[in-house]
Design a protein around this nucleic acid. Structure first.
Lengths: 321, 321
DNA sequence: GCAATTGACGAATCTTGATACACTTGAGCG
DNA sequence: CGCTCAAGTGTATCAAGATTCGTCAATTGC
């Protein structure tokens, strides 16, 4: 970031006049001796520079009934339901959920905590992208990746950046798992873990999670992920399914009742185990969309999450079925 | 607040489409089967209902040099300088300062603390009016009025409401001082204090302040205040001035060097004493405008405040003179 | 049961704000 | 020294959004 001293001040002044005091652009222009066009441009720049922030607050308890019902039925401590614009647009839903979750998260007390983060989750990445920087700095806060790298290099990049950014925004230290998320053998897994200091550190931190932002996944290989490599193969997924798996939480499979599926697959994953998830109060999940319904329900039934952000349709199905 | 269940949901939906997704009003209108006019009106309503919030952030350290200079010169832990639109418009300055202070305050950790509040201060009331509700609830947090009632009934109402609202927003319990701020005799003062349980409670809490939002006042009787009654008389002010007073902090007079002026006036005031102000780190003042300059400088010199929010002109004078 | 009143709504219109384009200025370079 | 190019600005214009006004439905009063 280069030194940009003057314009920001001017932008702030104009922005305050416009937004806070509600003065018209022409009036601002004439009172400052510049053209209206310039005021308009300054305002745009101010918005760009995040000097002006327009946020849409989800009014507390807008969907009060349905949220309470969800909480009661599944023993959640918090449920948040977001109105999806288009129930068919999974990407859009994920974005919306992420935005909503960002608001909710910003109200949570996180400083000093050890926070598990699932960086490959689309909704959690979108959460990070809309999170506003918190003024509270605390190096005591740790952001731990809960799973090694999965998917193609591009996704790995995004994930790392996302974790980094999350840590920056919240004012904590990121702990990365610099290793593939899925290995081809248990031996390889051991080798990888012992390989990197940072990875060992991160893995150790997984035992001390206060809050976990978990990703809930289906038993299919969705869009950006690819079978094999640092991910399960199609056969491995099929095997999990044949054992009753309907979904997974950070690649730990669970059945329709939420019961963990124990198999040799577990020993191939570098990441948080279900047993390591924090105690009640810190299991935060952001998931929605039709494809994830089964998995979400399973996770709820198994009590693996206690704060859920989801879309209207999923919420309704969760109560109906 | 009556039950307004449906429109809010709709407003939120539209607001999200417009602001978050950047969809044009006409498109929103057609996609929802309503007119563009209605979209416009819904957005206005959403803004009104605070569902949409447009905030202008003061970029961190915009006035870095001057703020640092202030901090160094007066040993402040924080200084914030706000650009005033019109240095002559004291009411406007107070509003601006209040808004800025609200942003700063919202970044402070307040839960669980005992917070002293000066409800008659215009800038602090304006702070409250722009403060955004915090989600953190904590009944352990206490908001204590630091001075009894002063001024006409209208002001008393405003003050009480302001304290109440502040407590609501921050999620704490308000403690009111239900007594005049200035009594005609020390005996009356004792009588008033013993009179009301709540007042006694509040007064007791003044000994345990963690943070004080102090008001800095001049030695004149400004606009909404009136001499006599529950306030000092003109003669009393003159007497304080003759003893060297140039300003007062919650009606405790100080001279140009910030040294407290001890007089029998002190025994007439129901409110916090200078000795009761919290230790370094919790003395928060919002004050600016030409008329207050002397008082602010005195308060700074006496080290009665360590976090100051003020306007550019005052800041510059504080460094120059 | 019928006016009168109120409030909500959309079409048309007017206002406000964004943008295309032309012009100025100053830095960098031949 | 003059040319080029980029950045920034103002004017004029165009698009987007706010408002006015008339209509209609629901509610209230008589």
């Amino acid at each position: 970031m280069a030194a940009v001293p003057e314009p920001r001040r001017f932008m702030t002044k104009v922005a305050r006049m416009y937004y806070t005091h509600g003065i018209r652009q022409v009036e601002i222009a004439s009172s400052l001796g510049i053209s209206q066009a310039r005021v308009s441009r300054l305002l745009q720049a101010a918005e760009q520079a995040k000097i002006v922030r327009t946020i849409v607050v989800i009014p507390e308890g807008l969907h009060a009934e349905i949220e309470e019902d969800l909480q009661k039925r599944y023993g959640l401590s918090q449920a948040h339901v977001v109105e999806a614009l288009d129930p068919n647009d999974e990407a859009g839903i994920n974005r919306d959920l992420g935005e909503a979750a960002a608001l909710i998260l910003s109200a949570m007390q996180l400083s000093g905590k050890t926070i598990g983060f699932t960086s490959w989750s689309r909704s959690l990445r979108s959460l990070v992208s809309t999170l506003e920087p918190s003024k509270k700095r605390s190096t005591a806060t740790r952001i731990v990746e809960m799973l090694g790298d999965v998917g193609p290099p591009q996704l790995q990049h995004d994930s790392t950046r996302s974790t980094q950014r999350f840590a920056d925004l919240i004012g904590g230290t990121p702990l990365f798992i610099r290793a593939p998320g899925v290995l081809s053998s248990a031996e390889m897994r051991e080798a990888m873990i012992s390989y990197d200091v940072h990875t060992r550190e991160a893995i150790a931190a997984l035992d001390e999670l206060d809050v976990a932002l978990v990703g809930i996944g289906t038993c299919n290989i969705d869009a950006p992920l690819e079978p094999g490599g640092n991910f399960f193969t199609v056969e491995q997924f099929e095997m999990a399914k044949s054992l009753g798996a309907v979904g997974q939480i950070n690649l730990r499979f669970i059945d329709a009742e939420g019961i963990p599926i124990v198999s040799e697959l577990d020993s191939l994953v570098i990441g948080v185990t279900l047993a390591q998830l924090p105690a009640k109060g810190g299991r935060f999940a952001v998931a929605g969309g039709r494809s994830k319904y089964e998995a979400v329900r399973a996770a709820l039934r198994g009590n693996w999450i206690d704060t859920l952000v989801t879309d209207m349709e999923t919420a309704e199905r969760l109560l109906r079925e």
